[in-house]
Every structure is written in structure tokens, then in C-alpha cells.
Computed example of a mutant assay.
Amino acid sequence: MCRWLAYTGSPVTLDDLLYKPANSLVMQQSLHSRLGAEPTNGDGFGVGWYDEHSPTPGVFRSIEPAWSDRNLRELAQHVRSGVVLAHIRATSGSAVQQTNCHPFRHGRWLWMHNGLVAGFGRLKRDLQLAVDPELFPLIEGSTDSETLFYLALTLGLEDDPPRAVALALGVVEEAARGHGVDFPVQGTLVTTDGERLWAFRYSSEGRSRSLFRNQDVAVLREQYPDNPVLHGLTDETRIVVSEPLGDLRGAWIEVPESTCLVVDGGREEVRPFAPA
């Protein structure tokens, strides 16, 4: 499927997140993913970030393979942000085009997905008819992921993200039952308004794509006092990833199945999650 990364903490360059880690999102996971459904994720990429210059996040998306895009490499060395979402894509059937690349944006909100809605072609009409008529014209691409985003916005994402995502996936599973589609939901989702971050791991089958969060930076500093990278991160730094960015023992904690992870500043909460 895909691989993604969500970062919140002290401002860093995109280069620090996308290229420098040992198992970096761009140079390693896009070509040699260890835990993904496919080792190569070359059907486009995207990155979204927040800064003080605009109330809405910036977004850069391309259909080029992430590892060979010179524009991304140039941009990454100059953009600094304290909240970043990045995604490398392996299509599950929809077209390779910019409007199908993640993250998707609406106002201050960004959204990414790794996985799929099984039987989406059969469910698409039902799901999109459930989208608010005022939001429906804003759907630009043809992916299940973007439809999920606007379905969640319709159901209250901006007010209560966990409830809205639970309701959106509930709509998907109900539509799937009507069309005889087994196990329709698969994957991990993340959304943010630039202040808080919500990540979800769920599948109808109970076999979700992988998801990890970093161990507390203060704990890692004690364990690895000679590691210079750890001294450059604040205690509030939180990274949520499809697969670990490096091999530092104890640095990554797997997010459990059927879970919502809420990150608010340096605080995080793990909640049980299921469709409503």
C-alpha cells in the first residue's frame, strides 16, 4: 500500500525527517519498505506542513517517485516546521495523478491513509452520496482515501475527530454489508489541525497495516547519552510512522490494533477504537 510519517515537536527541516534517518521515508521506505504490503512505493508522494506565514498548511504533491524528485530534495532543505505529514504512495488501483496523492487538505486540516476500502468501486456511490452536498464538489481525485476524508468532515471531523472517523468507517462497513463486501476497511489513518494529531489503526478483519510511535525522547537520552540526534530533539517530540525510521533498540513502540492515538503537545493518549 503506502508509507507515511507524522511529526510534531520543535521545528525541523523536512530534510531531517525525510532523508536523514537510517530507514528514511524517501530514500529507504519508498524503495525498500520492510513492513509494507509492497517493498516499493513509487506512485507519487506528498508532504504537508504548518508555519507562521499562513493559517492553512502548505502542501507539495507530485506523481514522481519520491526518491528521484529533485524538487522535493530542494524544498526539503529549506522548509522548517513543527508539524509535518509526509506520504509515499503505492496505488491500490486508482490512477497515478496529483489529485490522488496524500496528504489531502481542507482548511486547516490534513489527512493521510495507508490501506484501502475493499470493493470501493461498488461502494463509491453510496459513500459519496453520504458526503455533505457543500463538500462534495471539493473531492478532486478518485481515491477511497479522499472520499473517507470528506465523509469524516461531513460527520464532524473538525469538532470531534475520533467520533467522526468512527462514524465514517461505520458508514463504510454498513455499505459493505449491503453490497456483500467482506472486511471493507483496512489501514492506518492520521489527521491534524496543526495543533493536535489523531492517528488510527483499524481493519475490519483485525489485521491492520503496521503503525509505530516513538519512545519518550527523555527516556532515550538516558539510554543513549552519546547519540547526538537525541540531544537535538525536545522532550515534546512525537513521531508516528508506518514503520520505524531507524534501528535504535527501544526507540519505537507499536500502536496496538483497533486504537486511536491522540497527540497534544508533549502529551499522548491511547484509546480503544472501533467504527460507530
Rank of each mutant, 00 (worst) to 15 (best):
H102F: 05
G180K: 07
P161A: 13
S24M: 02
R213D: 11
D69N: 08
M112N: 11
G119Q: 12
T40Y: 05
R163N: 05
D226H: 13
T147N: 06
S145I: 06
G194T: 15
L233R: 10
D144I: 06
L169K: 03
E243Q: 07
E174S: 10
P161E: 08
P244N: 04
A118K: 15
S54N: 11
E205L: 13
D69W: 08
V240R: 10
T188S: 05
V190T: 14
Q215L: 04
V185E: 15
E173D: 13
G266C: 04
L189V: 12
G187F: 03
R209A: 05
V181P: 01
Q98I: 13
T147Q: 06
R177Q: 14
G42E: 08
P103Q: 09
G82W: 14
H87M: 02
P184L: 04
D15P: 01
I63D: 10
N100S: 11
L155K: 14
Q77P: 00
N114C: 02
L155P: 05
G250C: 09
L230F: 09
R80P: 00
G266T: 11
E243G: 09
S204I: 05
Q28W: 11
E205I: 06
Y19L: 01
D69Q: 01
M1F: 10
R221M: 00
G93R: 07
Q29P: 04
V181W: 03
W109P: 05
L151V: 07
T191R: 00
T56A: 05
I63A: 12
A118H: 15
L31I: 08
S142T: 15
P55Q: 04
S204G: 05
L197N: 14
C2W: 12
L169P: 10
E205D: 12
V181E: 01
S54Q: 10
S92H: 03
L18C: 06
P55N: 02
G58K: 14
A90E: 03
R201N: 01
Y50I: 02
V270Y: 10
M27N: 04
W252C: 04
P162H: 10
S68Y: 12
R125M: 09
R34Q: 13
E269S: 07
E74H: 12
W67R: 07
S94K: 00
Q98A: 13
G107H: 04
E236G: 03
D235I: 04
T191Q: 03
V12F: 01
V79L: 08
F273R: 15
D69Y: 03
L129H: 03
L248Y: 08
R89C: 10
F120C: 07
L25N: 01
L197M: 15
Y19K: 00
D193A: 13
Y150D: 09
L17C: 01
A86Y: 12
N227M: 01
G250K: 03
I139T: 08
L261G: 08
W109E: 12
P244T: 09
I239N: 06
E268R: 15
D51S: 03
A168I: 00
